[in-house]
Design a protein around this nucleic acid. Structure first.
Lengths: 244, 244
DNA sequence: CACGCAATATTGTCGGACGATCCGGCCGCG
DNA sequence: CGCGGCCGGATCGTCCGACAATATTGCGTG
């Protein structure tokens, strides 16, 4: 790998930020493949440890190998799959230890998000969003039945953190959290399925929002930590088969 | 993107036993390209906003477009470049706001690392590593001259955090921090170049290690926060031209 | 049944091709 | 002379086919 000549592009830098008329059809994009694979992995179509064979995906997705390979690179740095030289890609398996490590960081990030939200709770717009979210959480809570799918809890959870992400006005913070969550999603989903205390999670979200709106930092921190750790415990309670 | 269920594919014949033309050594790996580009960006060979033209890189690196494209995907999710559809890749430019956002998360992560280190300071192995690091930092400090390159400060800084990363035994934590640092590297380097208080940074590292070894959580937190914020201030002090 | 070798499957990488898109510049018109 | 529209080159997105390198598998043999 020798650097020869510094490449020089004849193409200029962006000049006029032209308007962006909503262009309808955009040909298949690598992102589509990434999204599809991510979806499949989250849904369990591909289980941890399973190999993702280029050729098969090329056939089932109807795209070229190049697209699949680019998608692989992306998913790899997202932590969803791992690529071994000459052995290809496989859905990443994580160990209990990794779950703990990840959750630990997630807790710190979540605490920061909650704390920052308290800083902004006097902003009318922020307050409105929080109150609206609280409303929704309560409604969701009241409609709970024994038959609810764990999937819905994950959705509620995602919405909850999305709200905090938006309110926080720090895309980096939100992105880091999402990144961590992505790698845990599958296990979290499984965890939610087996735990019998799903409604406690929702209650926790209500309490957190209330504490935030009340500006009670100590209580908020406690609740957020408990919330994150509940998820951890649910995941760690899964049978050994779920881990590496 | 519809999934047809059509696995498996068949292809080509065996190989040709005849002699093979003088073949260059084992072709480089995609990672090599990624590393090279990352290096160039960090070194300023490619400056923020500059476009990375596939064709040019193919020529100067002597690899195929496919390799370059895969490398792009990786660098994109690393946050070093951005890819706009039909316009290609360019070195990501970040705004002052993004610096603040990133540093904010970095501070939280750094605090967690330091705090966890204190938890483990009684482990003889950990203690040894910390003391060794303290030794090195002091030695480095004493050899400082006015002519030192800002580059060396970055190296020292990297070493410092690497030690905490190792001691912490949480790869996720370390990786998140590294990720954030990667996107700021360029600016941090520039910032270190213009600040006149470089030695204060080193002093801070000494103090942090001492506080950690002494188990003083409060002091450690204060010092770590100050340390991170010093870097932030150095970056924000850069002229507008350095930002988006 | 263990072992090693050969057939087969897959990956890593290359090079070419083709249409789509973007952009700068030229051209004709008012 | 200013300006909008069209042309052509530069680049990107994607597909295809090829081939060596490596991994995996199956089988024949001792």
């Amino acid at each position: 790998m020798t650097a020869k000549v510094i490449p020089i592009s004849r193409r200029r830098e962006p000049l006029n930020p032209a308007s962006t008329p909503p262009k309808a059809p955009a040909g298949p994009d690598v992102e589509k493949v990434v999204a599809e694979l991510r979806h499949w992995i989250h849904q369990g179509v591909f289980v941890p440890g399973q190999r993702l064979v280029e050729g098969d995906l090329v056939a089932s997705l109807g795209v070229s190998r190049g697209r699949v390979r680019e998608a692989f690179r992306r998913l790899e740095s997202e932590g969803l799959i791992e690529i071994e030289k000459n052995r290809g890609a496989s859905v990443r398996r994580i160990s209990r230890k990794e779950v703990e490590n990840t959750i630990e960081v997630m807790e710190a990030v979540s605490l920061l998000m909650a704390d920052k939200t308290i800083d902004r709770r006097d902003d009318p717009a922020v307050r409105a969003v929080l109150l609206d979210s609280l409303e929704k959480v309560r409604a969701f809570h009241n409609h709970l039945t024994e038959l609810e799918q764990s999937r819905q809890f994950m959705d509620e959870n995602a919405r909850f953190w999305d709200v905090l992400a938006v309110v926080n006005d720090n895309p980096v913070l939100a992105e880091v959290r999402m990144r961590l969550e992505t790698t845990l999603f599958r296990l979290a989903l499984e965890g939610a399925r087996i735990t019998s205390q799903k409604d406690k999670w929702i209650t926790r979200h209500e309490e957190i929002l209330e504490a935030v709106l009340a500006g009670d930092r100590a209580l908020t921190r406690t609740l957020v930590s408990e919330s994150v750790r509940d998820v951890r415990d649910a995941m760690l309670a899964l049978p050994d088969g779920a881990f590496r």
